[in-house]
Design a protein around this nucleic acid. Structure first.
Lengths: 205, 205
DNA sequence: GTCTATAGGTAGATAGAC
DNA sequence: GTCTATCTACCTATAGAC
């Protein structure tokens, strides 16, 4: 991934690749379409030393970084469980509002090539360590701060509620007939809706 | 070798296509791999009048039917809201346990080809009408059966919590290192976990 | 019904002109 | 740096042998 110098044309190629790969997936993308989207000739992709595989790895590594990177910061910070969950929902939905195609892209590619993701997990630290958060949930249950709950299931609940609507965005848009603006509006409302839901479910008897 | 054999071979082709398309997506699938998975020669695909597109449409229509079909039955039935939600979670997680690759497949293809899904929605009744359920949630809130909640957000919460872990199954398996058996065990526990969570969140003050 | 061989088309990559 | 032309490999589909 050494091709990230400031060359403007090269940046346009990377941006175009990000867009095309996110829309069509790796297998469905064509170098010709990436070149067209970048407004450059296909031959230039070779000139800038990009193969399809290299372009994808650059774009996908970046997507994984975005998808998981924000979690780390939230998990490392020192705050009470409810605030941490609130911060997670707030920041995560904001991230997805700014990058609505991210979940669909990442989930599709991981589904279609689990081995590639497995490598990333083992070789690098692209994937956050959730154990601290899981322990905090366990303790909060034991000390009566929240109603006791299986930490894994709570975390899965919160992440599911944040991410799924974006992963299923074209489905939701298709079924309800709403446009991008209405969808975004619903998702901004959703931040408060999720937290209200979680807080009611967690509040001690 | 009579008609029975012909049907049997054709059936093996369809099953193989279901498997390969679910794993690799439309663009990443190869007719050769489908033939191999079916244990037949590639030329037979033409003999049984299958093009790649035809095979995919057959398999995908079936997947949509499974993904949405069960919702209809639950929505049509006449029961109190909480029971209906419980029935939805119970039946839906069971369906996904039996077909774990279904969400990843359906969501990937809809993301990569929204127009195709849009057609299905408009032309046919493959997609359930959720309005009855939304109205029931609204009324339950107004009559004090449950704590008032935006019906869309509640429905999104419940569906997200059921479907997302399966859509992200390779990711979850990769991050936690668990195998299929452990994953299935967690998802079976999850049915009760989701309903307990929802019921606590919805219970009136 | 099933196989082999191949036609026809397309996509990734690159050499070489400018 | 950018474009045109082309090479090579692969993929869908099918004709024809058995």
């Amino acid at each position: 991934m050494g091709n990230t110098e400031k060359n403007e044309t090269n940046q346009r190629i990377i941006e175009a690749a990000r867009h095309v790969f996110a829309e069509r997936g790796y297998a469905g993308s064509r170098m010709q379409e990436i070149a067209d989207a970048a407004g450059v000739n296909k031959g230039l992709l070779t000139y800038y030393d990009w193969s399809k595989q290299k372009l994808f790895e650059a774009v996908f590594a970046d997507a994984l970084e975005q998808f998981f990177g924000h979690l780390d910061a939230i998990i490392e910070a020192d705050m009470p469980l409810i605030n941490r969950l609130e911060s997670l929902v707030d920041k995560y939905v904001d991230l997805l509002l700014a990058n609505p195609s991210l979940p669909g892209f990442v989930l599709s590619e991981i589904n279609q090539n689990p081995a590639f993701f497995q490598e990333k997990v083992q070789s690098q630290q692209k994937v956050p360590d959730l154990s601290r958060l899981l322990v905090q949930i366990q303790i909060a249950g034991q000390t009566g701060q929240i109603h006791p709950i299986d930490p894994f299931q709570l975390l899965m609940n919160v992440i599911s509620m944040c991410v799924f609507p974006f992963a299923g965005r074209p489905m939701i848009k298709g079924m309800t007939g709403i446009d991008d603006n209405s969808f975004n509006h619903l998702m901004r409302q959703r931040k408060a809706a999720i937290m209200a839901f979680v807080q009611r479910a967690l509040r001690p008897d």
